[in-house]
């Protein structure tokens, strides 16, 4: 049973760049997968590397209540899967997976782990001869071999092609079910698929935290709404939606419950294209095929929203759309 909590503040300086401050708290419960979601440059990898002990920082990192902030990385009992794999190129796959065994009291069997991850046949190969997906499975095996208290993963699927990514993501869901883990990604689909809880980062700060449903369905700011793929509707720009909500304007949910939203967010999949009995008329601006469905861009008043449909209308035509009240959330 492992619970991890971190309260970290650190300023990073790089030659030729402005100092960058990461100031964040996070918690991951036993066998929970916490996803740190954010755009490139938001500081999520720096936060993960700081938790791992690669960078000095102010604040605490506690595992089961014990502060390990002063411990070197090798004394934290963590495993780490890197985005670019970071496999040792001068060792075989087997030796990579066995790397941490001599520092671990009860390491897992390398051959068994490789077999479990479907790469046992690669044991005698060296990393430069492997494909991206194979490398990532080996990197995962190396991290799991030391029976880490906490598994840290930095965009492990980012460099993979789509079929490999989907296959490995499915395997990761199974692997992560049994270990406390922190998973960094900028991919919202991956985040929603594997997260028990999510924190969203922007410019070194946590801008929202919660369950995947809470973060994706009820974004608390335009930054989160945009990054998680919700439509953001500025109420000042659309009399139609304002009148739609007249008398039922969603508040920001402040302490007194009397705030008034300036904008609302709604998931694209919640925007319905109806034949009639809809809320308002919109013009179809663009239709893009996406796998088995179509993404439709719709314009009304001075705003655009996106929706998904299996039966796309013609570009330039007017359609009636419905914005379900219970799916509109202030942000």
């Amino acid at each position: 049973m492992t619970q991890l909590a971190a309260d970290i503040a650190s300023t990073f300086t790089a030659e030729g760049a402005e100092p960058f401050t990461v100031d964040a708290t996070l918690e991951a419960g036993d066998e929970e997968t916490l996803v740190i979601l954010g755009p490139s440059g938001s500081g999520k990898t720096l936060l993960l590397e700081t938790v791992a002990g690669f960078h000095g920082h102010d604040g605490t990192v506690t595992v089961n209540g014990t502060d390990i902030a002063d411990r070197a990385p090798e004394r934290r009992d963590f495993g780490f899967v890197f985005q670019d794999y970071a496999l040792f190129p001068h060792m075989t796959v087997r030796d990579n997976v066995r790397y941490g065994a001599q520092y671990c009291e009860n390491p897992r069997d390398a051959e068994g782990l490789l077999a479990e991850l479907g790469v046992a046949h690669l044991a005698d190969r060296t990393p430069p001869t492997l494909s991206g997906g194979e490398k990532q499975r080996v990197a995962l095996a190396r991290a799991l071999a030391v029976r880490p208290d906490v598994l840290l993963l930095d965009e492990p699927l980012a460099a993979l092609d789509v079929p490999t990514r989907q296959s490995l993501r499915d395997d990761l869901v199974d692997v992560l079910a049994d270990v406390t883990s922190i998973y960094v990604t900028h991919n919202r689909t991956t985040a929603r698929a594997i997260a028990d809880r999510i924190i969203v980062m922007a410019q070194g700060q946590v801008v929202q935290r919660g369950t995947p449903d809470a973060v994706f369905e009820r974004p608390e700011s335009p930054i989160v709404a945009n990054f998680t793929g919700s439509n953001v509707i500025e109420l000042a720009s659309t009399p139609a939606v304002r009148s739609l909500l007249d008398g039922d304007t969603p508040g920001r949910g402040d302490a007194h419950g009397n705030g008034t939203a300036e904008r609302v967010a709604i998931r694209p999949e919640a925007v319905r294209l109806d034949d009639d009995n809809g809320d308002l008329r919109a013009t179809v601006r663009r239709v893009v095929r996406e796998d088995a469905t179509h993404r439709v861009t719709l314009a009304f008043d001075e705003v655009t929203v996106e929706s998904f449909t299996d039966s796309p209308p013609e570009v330039g035509t007017d359609v009636v759309i419905t914005l379900p009240r219970d799916r509109l959330h202030p942000c």
Binding site: F80, F88, Q102, V146
Partner: peptide, 10 residues
């Protein structure tokens, strides 16, 4: 690579 070595015990 050095990070990977450190975090896995060395």
């Amino acid at each position: 690579l050095e990070y990977a070595s450190r975090i896995h015990g060395a």
